[in-house]
Design a protein around this nucleic acid. Structure first.
Lengths: 99, 99
DNA sequence: CGTATATTTCTATAAATCTAGAAACATCGA
DNA sequence: TCGATGTTTCTAGATTTATAGAAATATACG
């Protein structure tokens, strides 16, 4: 994971409504949720929600899967794990003694 | 860790120069670095760096320790770990069957 | 005291983001 | 085909953030 990708991911997580959406999807698990479901659970207006979902998707945190009239959104668990790992990835790298 | 704190943390990580600063401090380990050291390693102008360090500190990601003329900055490793853990904290909570 | 050093605060401009109503678009069912 | 449903795109004003030069502050040293 490079720094640009990581930064985009964290930036996407750096807004309360967006984090709320993401957590709703993380809680929902791999089945995902329809946009309408998310809207119901979060109370975010449709257009605002669409905006945030696009932001989350373009950061790779969420995947959207259109089927008929509805769109299923799912958290991208692999990517989320990588981001979590990135935070302390290079911890203390500069402290290493000449081993 | 509540959602507001987490969001502030991720927001602070959601900018490339700031993430670069944070990583520089994470690499440096618990000894930390002087503002001037960070400036040298990142090439960020002093006033811009001060701005970002304040942002990082107010999000709890970094601690500043003034001593004489210099200020030592350290990554707040505990907080960073909590943030990393937060991302998938409630993973699949809504999928649980009636156990 | 006066000067050099380390860092911040002030300031201003440019750019990005947030929010949400309204309109548009696509798909399904009758 | 027509109306209902689910979701997006358009739009625009308000707010936040980014950047960095210049001035200010604080401490140390001679």
């Amino acid at each position: 994971m490079d720094i640009v990708t990581a930064t985009q991911g964290f930036s996407a997580m750096g807004s309360e409504p967006r984090m709320e959406v993401l957590q709703t999807l993380v809680k929902a698990g791999k089945e995902g949720l329809l946009v309408g479901d998310i809207q119901q659970r979060t109370g975010i207006p449709a257009s605002t929600l669409a905006h945030h979902l696009k932001f989350l998707a373009s950061a790779g945190l969420v995947c959207a899967d259109k089927k008929g009239r509805t769109i299923t959104n799912r958290a991208n668990f692999d990517h989320l794990e990588s981001l979590a790992a990135f935070i302390l990835e290079e911890c203390c790298a500069d402290m290493e003694t000449t081993t």
